[in-house]
């Protein structure tokens, strides 16, 4: 369909007797959700462009268990975590990068006490590192004059205080960044967290994603950028609720960067 992405699995690295620079933790959404798969692909395009020697677990990867934990199923979470830790430790993984703030949070904060100690980064942090080290350059004015508002994913922002990396990346495209009234620590949830993504909401007078999208639309954006596959789905649905699909697009920060470079 599109040009070939260079993606190697850990098994292949092992067979060559090599270690990758980073492990890209794709996550269940990034692997299976049609919208999120595009984010995985955009991120890989950037990794390929920067010549990063990265690996994925491929068919060996399994759910982090995060969503089970938020739902209250500590058993299932710890089963998943220990299985994953056994695999990751077996491969002697040191550094993990993921596009999913929920995987990021649990791998970074909740895996260590179960025996999984890794340097875990959100993809926006890693992309910023690549740019800072001169390995990735973002040029061109493709987004000049476009208004982008960034929706902070709860598990990236409030939960782990990562606010600047995604904004700095967006600024590289020369787009005009506009902030919603509620942003950073005060950002409103998209409504997907805490396993809500997988169930109907309780009875109320509005859906959370619609309320959040309202806040985003108040900034009059061309693009709503985010850094989470679940936020992406929720905001996209919100845009549909306001029938704004024609004028506003929801994109991951990685997609904004990849697009800006014509990747």
């Amino acid at each position: 369909m599109s040009e070939q992405l260079k993606v190697k699995t850990m098994q292949e690295f092992m067979a060559e007797g090599k270690q990758p620079e980073i492990l890209f933790w794709v996550g269940s959404a990034g692997s299976f959700d049609d919208r999120a798969k595009k984010i995985s692909r955009a991120f890989v395009k950037l990794l390929n462009k920067a010549n990063v020697d990265f690996a994925v677990l491929g068919t060996e990867e399994s759910s982090t268990g995060d969503v089970a934990k938020r739902a209250g199923n500590e058993f299932l979470f710890q089963m998943q975590a220990m299985m994953n830790i056994e695999l990751l430790n077996g491969y002697e993984i040191k550094r993990i990068v993921t596009c999913d703030p929920h995987s990021f949070n649990t791998l970074k904060n909740e895996y260590p006490s179960l025996g999984g100690n890794y340097d875990v980064l959100h993809h926006t942090q890693y992309l910023k590192e690549l740019i800072d080290n001169g390995r990735l350059t973002i040029t061109g004015d493709g987004y000049k004059g476009k208004r982008i508002t960034f929706h902070d994913p709860c598990y990236l922002g409030r939960a782990n205080s990562v606010f600047d990396a995604p904004r700095e990346l967006l600024a590289k495209t020369n787009a005009e960044l506009v902030e919603m009234k509620r942003h950073k620590k005060a950002a409103l949830c998209c409504g997907a967290g805490g396993a809500q993504m997988f169930k109907e909401p309780e009875k109320g007078d509005m859906d959370v994603n619609v309320l959040r999208t309202k806040g985003a639309l108040e900034t009059n954006p061309n693009i709503i950028a985010t850094g989470c596959p679940y936020c992406n789905t929720m905001m996209t649905d919100g845009i549909k609720a306001y029938e704004k699909e024609d004028s506003v697009t929801v994109l991951d920060v990685a997609e904004v960067l990849a697009n800006s470079q014509g990747l």
């Binding site: 369909m1 070939q4 992405l5 993606v7 699995t9 794709v26 990034g30 692997s31 299976f32 798969k37 995985s40 692909r41 890989v44 994925v56 491929g58 068919t59 990867e61 399994s62």
Partner: peptide, 11 residues
């Protein structure tokens, strides 16, 4: 299916 986890690469 877990065996389909890497299909996104070639889609």
């Amino acid at each position: 299916n877990q065996m389909d986890r890497l299909n996104w690469v070639n889609e």
